[in-house]
Write a protein that binds this DNA or RNA. Structure first.
Lengths: 275, 275
DNA sequence: GGAGCGCTGTATCGTATGTTACGTATTTTG
DNA sequence: CAAAATACGTAACATACGATACAGCGCTCC
């Protein structure tokens, strides 16, 4: 049962030629506003010609463009009347893969932040913004990309940010560079990796301050960590979700950036000029 | 402070002559839909003549009818984009760094999935699960970790998954291995990278099917993409957020895994025994 | 009660908008 | 590799839409 134009498009987008598909994608991307504008604006926004828009509309089964617009308007009107039914995608009957996954993820985030105080985040941000020491980041098999993501951002706004990648032996050798003033950010969720635990222990012995991103069951590394961020990871999937940790990471990145505002801005400008 | 046209009308309806007042009441009664229709329809619905509608619009301060309609559309668009900020969620006191960031992120996700149909995700998942071709993943400066994250998971459940890293020249050379049956997953958000665009174009020429993760303004790569996922990225931070795209990626990973259930499970067992 | 003012609708006009025809480029098929 | 089919854009076209001029009507105020 197809009830909305968006569904209709999703249903037929596969059978459309390239130009019309672009039209479809542009419409979906900012649904449904562009469809309410003129053909000329729609076509310009999609980067195709007007006739292509009209053919696209015709393929959806409409006699002409105004009829198509009326449909969009009716749909909008219906949505506005019942705020509860505002979701563009109906509750996806028959084992939809989207809704449960999204709901669980959103819950995870709320729950994660509920157990995370502003002060805690501010402390960690201050620690990361402290320019007297270096910052190292490392992650496990699936969480290493999170470490990379964070490193990529932090490296823009301050010097001495290092992502530890590659062979275990590689980063173990970097231990010699680490000291009391340095921070080590570790991402480790189930199933926890021994290599990371060993590494964390040695770093801890050298006085390195460890910030740990882990799941709600806490990696054994928590024992050595100065700060522990426990994110919810359970979702209806074969895999655990790192989304909550990802959002915490982004939040921290934002906080650190704000703290380094002055120096950071200058640094970013310099960087721009180097490109 | 008057922020919406509805308020504007309420403010001035007292000073209006009878005919225009009827127009105003009709508009308010089914706000704002009638205002998006033609002058003729509006006038008929209000039981007045077209010029009266135009005079009504002029009195509100608009130069002409299209300008009035654009204002209504902008207002609608703003409403549709931030569903939560409209009703619930008080402005979270204390100006902590956490709440606004989290709220915006949650909104982004809801909004992103609102524009994403089950069918679309299923199509992409099916494509990624198709074992006849290879899967390549690549990302931009800040989004490459997302590509890595996805690659790390997909590589576990199926063979021939490759993350393209390192020098541009490196992955450009991999083009020769790509063909019609293969899929290229690209992550590209503002500011879009030329190198990725060039790469996407060449891949497209070779018939590679491109799945694009981008922001709501659509990377130029969308032109060559078979599937486009437009995630919301705006957050109260100096950086754009990739969290929504991250969640979409996780959802896809889950969907692909489910499709490859049988073979995947066997593969995972084998892998376990190899460790 | 009459004159003036203001509001409203009818009819006309100009134009922006949707539509269509046609030629070129691109892809598909034998 | 050739030929056909399909898709796309340019440009001309028609129409429907918004804008305007003007006349009629009612209302108010002297």
């Amino acid at each position: 049962m197809i009830s909305s134009i968006a569904e209709l498009i999703a249903d037929r987008i596969g059978t459309m030629p390239a130009g019309e598909r672009r039209a479809a994608q542009t419409l979906i991307a900012s649904y449904p506003m562009i469809g309410l504008k003129t053909v000329a604006e729609f076509s310009a926004s999609a980067g195709v010609s007007s006739p292509t828009i009209l053919r696209f509309v015709a393929r959806l089964g409409f006699q002409n463009y105004p009829e198509f617009q009326s449909s969009l308007q009716d749909e909008l009107a219906a949505q506005l009347q019942s705020p509860a039914t505002r979701t563009l995608n109906p509750p996806s009957p028959g084992g939809g893969t989207v809704s449960p996954m999204l709901e669980a993820t959103l819950d995870n985030m709320r729950e994660t932040f509920r157990h995370l105080s502003d002060k805690q985040l501010a402390d960690i941000a201050a620690r990361l913004a402290d320019r007297r020491g270096k910052t190292f980041l490392i992650g496990g098999r699936f969480t290493d990309p999170l470490a990379r993501y964070m490193a990529a951002h932090l490296a823009v706004i301050q010097p001495d940010v290092f992502h530890l990648a590659g062979q275990e032996s590689m980063w173990r050798d970097r231990l010699i560079d680490m000291g009391k003033r340095d921070v080590l950010v570790i991402f480790d969720i189930r199933r926890y990796q021994d290599s990371l635990l060993r590494f964390a222990e040695k770093a801890h012995q050298r006085g390195v301050q460890i910030v740990l991103f882990t799941d709600q069951w806490l990696s054994p590394i928590a024992r050595f960590a100065r700060h522990v961020i426990a994110g919810r990871t359970a979702v209806p999937s074969a895999w655990d979700s790192s989304a909550a940790l990802f959002v915490v990471a982004e939040t921290l990145i934002g906080a650190v950036t704000r703290q380094l505002e002055a120096e950071g801005a200058k640094r970013i400008r310099e960087m721009e000029s180097l490109r």
